[in-house]
């Protein structure tokens, strides 16, 4: 029973990591992803944005089943990935691929580019049509001669293009992009984003785009999920939607605009992200929030709908008529 609109449906996904109890250390557990639900419709780009420790990379790995969730389900094209036998999961992986953050460590240094891009075929036991490698390299804007090079002989941008070519090899429907440009120069970042946009249009792909850069996410994505310490705090139906949650607002204010005419003179947020061990009882953001009340410290807010597709988890959301702090 395939879903006609949504390619990917994540329902109440939770991942807890237990640090093993040592001889002297007590067992501790950390909830990296807590109760996350989201849907990605076919042909769209959904952005997941947040700072370190917000669980966005863990979420990406849960979606692709590189990690087993503690609770919750992931449906891909109507199929519950958690119920698949290993053999069927391997088949399903053809249709969902990942592009990794670090183009340096995501390619085996002993493989030639030809071998890297050909690996999906070997792994899936598929015959590699002659010329397919050249075709894939061409698709990501690389010259065919590069096939015989080793990763260390390429620049960061070229390597990331190789990473994209590998992900495209088996003609997937969904790409999970885990900060694909975070370790690249801005001029190269823009190249890769342009490439991803072109590929999406030409191949009809669907993207789940993970990033810490709200400015980039607002440029690239159709819908935006904002995460803080493992939980979704806000879901924006469009990149231009004004945020309701104070954390999203703060994230937006911390994104420096390349316009000296629009300087912000106050840091909008004090303090730092608390440890994911020992989460507070109430709202995880309360300690840094200027709007926090006593209720925020004792009770955890749940996501509530503000407008169509716009949800926020906050007891004191920013109202429409409130002016943004300058």
């Amino acid at each position: 029973m395939a879903d006609a609109t949504n390619l990917l449906v994540i329902d109440r996904l939770t991942k807890r990591f237990d640090s093993g109890a040592g001889l002297f250390a007590p067992r501790r557990s950390m909830t990296a992803v807590r109760d996350v639900s989201l849907a990605v419709s076919r042909g769209s780009v959904v952005g997941v944005v947040g700072e370190s420790g917000c669980g966005k990379s863990t979420l990406a790995r849960l979606v692709l089943r590189l990690l087993e969730p503690t609770q919750g389900t992931v449906h891909f094209d109507g199929i519950d990935l958690g119920k698949l036998a290993p053999r069927d999961l391997r088949k399903a992986r053809r249709r969902m691929q990942m592009v990794f953050q670090d183009p340096y460590s995501s390619l085996d240094p002993r493989f030639t580019i030809e071998q890297v891009v050909g690996e999906p075929f070997t792994v899936q036991g598929e015959v590699l049509a002659p010329g397919r490698i050249a075709e894939l390299l061409d698709q990501v804007g690389l010259a065919g001669e590069i096939a015989r090079s080793y990763p260390h002989q390429l620049s960061g941008g070229q390597r990331q293009r190789v990473g994209v070519a590998r992900a495209l090899a088996l003609r997937p429907d969904l790409l999970v992009l885990d900060e694909p440009t975070a370790s690249l120069d801005v001029s190269i970042q823009a190249q890769i984003i342009k490439l991803l946009q072109d590929l999406k249009r030409d191949l009809g792909l669907t993207y789940l785009f993970i990033s810490h850069d709200l400015g980039l996410v607002r440029y690239f994505c159709d819908r935006i999920i904002v995460m803080y310490l493992g939980a979704v705090v806000e879901e924006l139906p469009s990149p231009s939607t004004e945020p309701r949650h104070p954390y999203t607002r703060a994230l937006l204010d911390s994104t420096f605009s390349p316009d000296p005419g629009k300087r912000r003179h106050l840091a909008s947020l004090t303090g730092e992200i608390p440890s994911a061990f020992n989460l507070p009882k109430g709202c995880a953001f309360a300690a840094r929030c200027s709007r926090a009340s006593s209720r925020c410290l004792s009770e955890r807010p749940s996501l509530t709908m503000h407008a169509s597709g716009h949800r926020a988890a906050c007891f004191h959301p920013i109202a429409d008529d409130e002016k943004e702090p300058s």
Binding site: K91, R93, R94, Q97, D108, E119, V123, R166
Partner: peptide, 26 residues
């Protein structure tokens, strides 16, 4: 713990493939 191992399992690679094609050669 290198990403290329994760990348291989994301492609659907078996333990044998990861051990003999990636881990041991490196």
């Amino acid at each position: 713990s290198e990403t290329f191992i994760e990348a291989a399992s994301g492609l659907g690679a078996s333990h044998r493939h990861i051990l003999f094609r990636h881990l041991l050669p490196n």
